[in-house]
Amino acid sequence: MTRKNRRLMLVGGVVLGLGTATVLLFQAFRSTGELFVVPSKIAANAPKGDRAFRLGGMVEAGSLQHLQEGTKPAVEFRVSDGIASVEVKFVGILPDLFREGQGVVTLGKLRPDGTFAAQEVLAKHDENYMPGDMADELKRTGWKPENGAPPAAALWNAAKVGG
């Protein structure tokens, strides 16, 4: 291969790479780049018709029901954004972090009866990291994980002293 050809291929590769990058960027950020739609915005932002989309929000406390669909484990729970909530049904294995009070992103379709048939459920982690004994301490002083995020990290020591 001549040097000119090699150069041509390299520059072509760069153009191709950058082009792919740009396409990916716009692909991912189309519809303003949101990954999921929250329950209160379904009417406004979810795709119309029988199309799959991602529904995101918090698993509502007390809404989780374990069921059986044939031999497979199934669950029903409500996904809420604090304003509205949607009933979600899912057959399959849940991620480890799934629980009431956890953020989730589910992929599926809205059925005519207003429930959401999920084919995939992903758990969303929040920005809080804390050791197990700290969580136990907070639970002892009244924090319930299913109701939402723990108090700010700056207050943990106070909780420890108080508890």
């Binding site: 950058l18 950020f29 480890d96 992903l122």
Partner: peptide, 25 residues
């Protein structure tokens, strides 16, 4: 193991992938 997915095309992951392509470019 945490989320349940190796990869999702969300804005953070896609923009870091673009950073990788910029380095390669």
């Amino acid at each position: 193991p945490m989320w349940g997915a190796w990869w999702v095309w969300d804005a953070r992951m896609t923009s870091v992938l673009v950073l990788f392509f910029l380095y390669l470019g």
